[in-house]
Design a protein around this nucleic acid. Structure first.
Lengths: 100, 100
DNA sequence: GGACTAATGCAACATATGTAGATTTAAGAG
DNA sequence: CTCTTAAATCTACATATGTTGCATTAGTCC
Protein backbone atom coordinates (compact mmCIF):
# COMPACT_ATOMS: atom_id res chain seq x y z
CA UNK A 1 0.00 0.00 0.00
CA UNK A 2 1.09 3.51 -0.73
CA UNK A 3 2.07 5.52 2.30
CA UNK A 4 1.95 9.27 2.04
CA UNK A 5 4.13 11.10 4.48
CA UNK A 6 3.82 14.61 5.72
CA UNK A 7 6.47 16.81 4.16
CA UNK A 8 9.71 16.26 6.04
CA UNK A 9 11.83 19.00 7.54
CA UNK A 10 14.28 18.63 4.68
CA UNK A 11 11.52 19.00 2.14
CA UNK A 12 10.19 22.08 3.92
CA UNK A 13 13.63 23.69 3.91
CA UNK A 14 13.98 22.97 0.22
CA UNK A 15 10.52 24.25 -0.67
CA UNK A 16 11.18 27.43 1.25
CA UNK A 17 14.49 28.05 -0.52
CA UNK A 18 12.99 27.34 -3.93
CA UNK A 19 9.85 29.38 -3.42
CA UNK A 20 11.85 32.52 -2.57
CA UNK A 21 12.46 33.06 -6.27
CA UNK A 22 9.81 30.88 -7.73
CA UNK A 23 10.61 31.26 -11.41
CA UNK A 24 14.38 31.00 -11.11
CA UNK A 25 16.10 27.85 -12.26
CA UNK A 26 18.24 26.69 -9.37
CA UNK A 27 21.20 24.31 -9.42
CA UNK A 28 21.51 21.41 -7.05
CA UNK A 29 24.88 22.60 -5.83
CA UNK A 30 23.56 26.04 -4.95
CA UNK A 31 20.60 24.55 -3.14
CA UNK A 32 22.97 22.29 -1.22
CA UNK A 33 24.90 25.28 0.06
CA UNK A 34 21.84 27.41 0.72
CA UNK A 35 19.80 24.77 2.50
CA UNK A 36 22.66 22.91 4.16
CA UNK A 37 21.22 19.64 2.85
CA UNK A 38 23.83 17.06 1.88
CA UNK A 39 24.03 15.77 -1.66
CA UNK A 40 22.84 12.33 -0.58
CA UNK A 41 19.69 13.94 0.81
CA UNK A 42 19.13 16.71 -1.69
CA UNK A 43 19.47 14.92 -5.01
CA UNK A 44 17.17 12.00 -4.17
CA UNK A 45 14.71 14.51 -2.70
CA UNK A 46 14.74 16.62 -5.86
CA UNK A 47 14.24 13.49 -7.92
CA UNK A 48 11.31 12.34 -5.80
CA UNK A 49 9.75 15.78 -5.97
CA UNK A 50 10.22 15.79 -9.73
CA UNK A 51 8.41 12.45 -9.92
CA UNK A 52 5.64 13.88 -7.77
CA UNK A 53 5.25 16.87 -10.06
CA UNK A 54 6.35 19.40 -7.45
CA UNK A 55 9.54 20.28 -9.29
CA UNK A 56 10.54 20.44 -12.95
CA UNK A 57 14.09 19.75 -14.10
CA UNK A 58 16.18 20.77 -17.07
CA UNK A 59 19.78 20.35 -18.23
CA UNK A 60 21.93 23.39 -18.78
CA UNK A 61 25.10 23.30 -20.82
CA UNK A 62 28.29 24.03 -18.90
CA UNK A 63 29.78 27.48 -19.35
CA UNK A 64 33.30 26.04 -19.51
CA UNK A 65 34.57 22.69 -20.74
CA UNK A 66 35.62 20.30 -18.01
CA UNK A 67 32.71 21.26 -15.83
CA UNK A 68 29.68 19.01 -15.60
CA UNK A 69 26.47 19.93 -17.33
CA UNK A 70 24.26 21.26 -14.59
CA UNK A 71 20.82 20.06 -13.66
CA UNK A 72 18.50 23.00 -13.05
CA UNK A 73 15.36 22.72 -10.93
CA UNK A 74 12.29 24.94 -10.49
CA UNK A 75 9.05 24.62 -8.58
CA UNK A 76 5.91 23.75 -10.51
CA UNK A 77 2.58 25.37 -9.66
CA UNK A 78 1.82 22.38 -7.44
CA UNK A 79 5.16 22.72 -5.71
CA UNK A 80 4.68 26.41 -5.12
CA UNK A 81 1.17 25.78 -3.79
CA UNK A 82 2.55 23.28 -1.32
CA UNK A 83 5.29 25.68 -0.27
CA UNK A 84 2.71 28.42 0.30
CA UNK A 85 0.49 26.14 2.33
CA UNK A 86 3.40 25.12 4.53
CA UNK A 87 4.51 28.73 4.94
CA UNK A 88 1.01 29.55 6.17
CA UNK A 89 1.37 26.95 8.85
CA UNK A 90 -1.02 24.50 7.30
CA UNK A 91 0.61 21.12 7.03
CA UNK A 92 -2.08 19.79 4.72
CA UNK A 93 -1.83 19.54 0.99
CA UNK A 94 -3.82 21.97 -1.13
CA UNK A 95 -6.62 20.48 -3.20
CA UNK A 96 -6.18 20.06 -6.92
CA UNK A 97 -6.54 23.19 -8.92
CA UNK A 98 -5.50 25.58 -6.20
CA UNK A 99 -2.90 28.05 -7.49
CA UNK A 100 -3.04 26.37 -10.87
CA UNK B 1 67.82 31.74 -16.75
CA UNK B 2 65.88 28.72 -17.86
CA UNK B 3 66.48 25.62 -15.86
CA UNK B 4 65.82 22.30 -17.53
CA UNK B 5 65.22 19.47 -15.18
CA UNK B 6 65.70 15.81 -15.80
CA UNK B 7 62.36 14.05 -16.11
CA UNK B 8 61.03 13.46 -12.62
CA UNK B 9 59.86 10.10 -11.28
CA UNK B 10 56.28 11.25 -11.69
CA UNK B 11 56.88 12.19 -15.30
CA UNK B 12 58.56 8.87 -15.97
CA UNK B 13 55.62 6.98 -14.51
CA UNK B 14 53.22 8.99 -16.63
CA UNK B 15 55.25 8.58 -19.81
CA UNK B 16 55.43 4.86 -19.25
CA UNK B 17 51.68 4.56 -18.74
CA UNK B 18 50.91 6.67 -21.78
CA UNK B 19 53.42 5.01 -24.07
CA UNK B 20 51.91 1.56 -23.41
CA UNK B 21 49.15 2.39 -25.87
CA UNK B 22 50.68 5.25 -27.70
CA UNK B 23 47.78 6.19 -29.97
CA UNK B 24 45.03 5.84 -27.38
CA UNK B 25 43.42 8.96 -25.98
CA UNK B 26 43.64 8.66 -22.22
CA UNK B 27 41.60 10.49 -19.60
CA UNK B 28 43.18 12.26 -16.66
CA UNK B 29 41.08 10.30 -14.21
CA UNK B 30 42.17 6.95 -15.65
CA UNK B 31 45.80 8.02 -15.60
CA UNK B 32 45.39 9.07 -11.97
CA UNK B 33 44.22 5.61 -11.03
CA UNK B 34 46.71 3.78 -13.20
CA UNK B 35 49.77 5.78 -12.19
CA UNK B 36 48.75 6.51 -8.62
CA UNK B 37 49.55 10.19 -9.16
CA UNK B 38 47.25 12.58 -7.33
CA UNK B 39 45.17 15.08 -9.24
CA UNK B 40 47.22 17.97 -7.89
CA UNK B 41 50.34 16.41 -9.40
CA UNK B 42 48.91 14.85 -12.53
CA UNK B 43 46.94 17.72 -14.01
CA UNK B 44 49.67 20.34 -13.70
CA UNK B 45 52.12 17.77 -15.07
CA UNK B 46 49.91 17.02 -18.07
CA UNK B 47 49.51 20.75 -18.69
CA UNK B 48 53.25 21.36 -18.51
CA UNK B 49 53.89 18.45 -20.84
CA UNK B 50 51.26 19.81 -23.21
CA UNK B 51 53.04 23.16 -23.20
CA UNK B 52 56.31 21.38 -23.88
CA UNK B 53 54.81 19.57 -26.84
CA UNK B 54 55.16 16.12 -25.30
CA UNK B 55 51.41 15.61 -25.01
CA UNK B 56 48.43 16.72 -27.05
CA UNK B 57 45.04 17.35 -25.46
CA UNK B 58 41.46 17.26 -26.66
CA UNK B 59 38.01 17.60 -25.11
CA UNK B 60 35.57 14.72 -25.36
CA UNK B 61 31.86 15.15 -24.86
CA UNK B 62 30.44 13.31 -21.86
CA UNK B 63 28.52 10.12 -22.58
CA UNK B 64 25.87 11.02 -20.02
CA UNK B 65 24.55 14.39 -18.89
CA UNK B 66 25.65 15.44 -15.46
CA UNK B 67 29.15 14.18 -15.98
CA UNK B 68 31.96 16.55 -16.81
CA UNK B 69 33.32 16.74 -20.31
CA UNK B 70 36.55 14.78 -20.23
CA UNK B 71 39.95 16.00 -21.19
CA UNK B 72 41.75 13.39 -23.26
CA UNK B 73 45.53 13.26 -23.58
CA UNK B 74 47.88 11.47 -25.93
CA UNK B 75 51.63 11.41 -26.43
CA UNK B 76 53.06 13.35 -29.35
CA UNK B 77 55.96 11.96 -31.36
CA UNK B 78 58.31 13.96 -29.14
CA UNK B 79 56.67 12.56 -26.01
CA UNK B 80 56.89 9.01 -27.30
CA UNK B 81 60.51 9.53 -28.24
CA UNK B 82 61.27 10.70 -24.74
CA UNK B 83 59.39 7.76 -23.24
CA UNK B 84 61.36 5.34 -25.41
CA UNK B 85 64.65 6.92 -24.46
CA UNK B 86 63.83 6.67 -20.78
CA UNK B 87 62.66 3.07 -21.15
CA UNK B 88 66.04 2.27 -22.70
CA UNK B 89 67.73 3.59 -19.63
CA UNK B 90 69.06 6.71 -21.24
CA UNK B 91 68.11 9.70 -19.17
CA UNK B 92 69.02 12.14 -21.89
CA UNK B 93 66.64 13.81 -24.26
CA UNK B 94 66.60 12.67 -27.87
CA UNK B 95 67.82 15.18 -30.39
CA UNK B 96 65.36 17.02 -32.56
CA UNK B 97 64.06 15.01 -35.43
CA UNK B 98 64.47 11.64 -33.81
CA UNK B 99 61.28 9.58 -34.15
CA UNK B 100 59.64 12.45 -35.96
C1' DG C 1 1.07 0.55 22.57
C1' DG C 2 3.80 -2.50 19.67
C1' DA C 3 5.15 -4.89 15.48
C1' DC C 4 5.87 -4.52 10.71
C1' DT C 5 7.73 -2.17 6.97
C1' DA C 6 7.77 1.60 3.47
C1' DA C 7 9.86 5.90 3.07
C1' DT C 8 13.39 8.83 4.08
C1' DG C 9 17.96 10.45 5.58
C1' DC C 10 22.83 10.36 5.72
C1' DA C 11 27.86 9.10 5.53
C1' DA C 12 30.78 7.48 2.36
C1' DC C 13 32.05 6.68 -2.05
C1' DA C 14 32.50 7.51 -7.20
C1' DT C 15 33.04 10.31 -11.26
C1' DA C 16 35.90 14.09 -13.30
C1' DT C 17 38.84 18.16 -13.52
C1' DG C 18 41.12 21.42 -11.78
C1' DT C 19 43.31 25.54 -8.39
C1' DA C 20 45.76 27.58 -4.13
C1' DG C 21 49.21 27.64 -1.21
C1' DA C 22 52.92 25.49 1.44
C1' DT C 23 56.61 22.42 1.10
C1' DT C 24 60.20 19.87 -1.15
C1' DT C 25 63.57 19.04 -4.70
C1' DA C 26 67.21 19.92 -7.55
C1' DA C 27 69.81 22.96 -11.12
C1' DG C 28 73.30 26.30 -11.47
C1' DA C 29 76.59 29.51 -9.32
C1' DG C 30 80.42 30.23 -6.43
C1' DC D 1 79.98 21.18 -1.11
C1' DT D 2 76.89 24.86 -0.04
C1' DC D 3 73.84 28.55 -1.11
C1' DT D 4 70.17 30.37 -3.64
C1' DT D 5 65.97 29.94 -5.86
C1' DA D 6 63.10 28.28 -9.77
C1' DA D 7 60.58 24.33 -10.66
C1' DA D 8 57.94 20.60 -9.23
C1' DT D 9 55.14 18.13 -5.86
C1' DC D 10 51.57 17.44 -2.50
C1' DT D 11 47.68 18.42 0.77
C1' DA D 12 43.57 20.40 0.84
C1' DC D 13 39.97 22.52 -1.23
C1' DA D 14 36.40 23.67 -4.89
C1' DT D 15 33.13 22.59 -8.53
C1' DA D 16 29.16 19.56 -9.68
C1' DT D 17 26.10 15.49 -9.68
C1' DG D 18 24.91 11.57 -8.39
C1' DT D 19 24.66 6.20 -6.19
C1' DT D 20 25.12 2.69 -2.46
C1' DG D 21 24.05 0.75 1.53
C1' DC D 22 22.98 1.11 6.24
C1' DA D 23 20.33 3.53 9.90
C1' DT D 24 16.40 6.03 11.27
C1' DT D 25 11.71 7.71 11.06
C1' DA D 26 7.07 7.30 10.75
C1' DG D 27 2.49 5.32 8.67
C1' DT D 28 -0.61 1.42 9.17
C1' DC D 29 -2.65 -2.50 11.11
C1' DC D 30 -3.82 -5.15 15.20
Amino acid sequence: MVRKRQPSTQMRVLLEAMSAQRQQWRHGYDLMKETGLLSGTLYPLLMRMTDQGLVEAEWHEPAQPGRPARHAYRLTAAGFALALGLAQGRGDLPSDGAFA
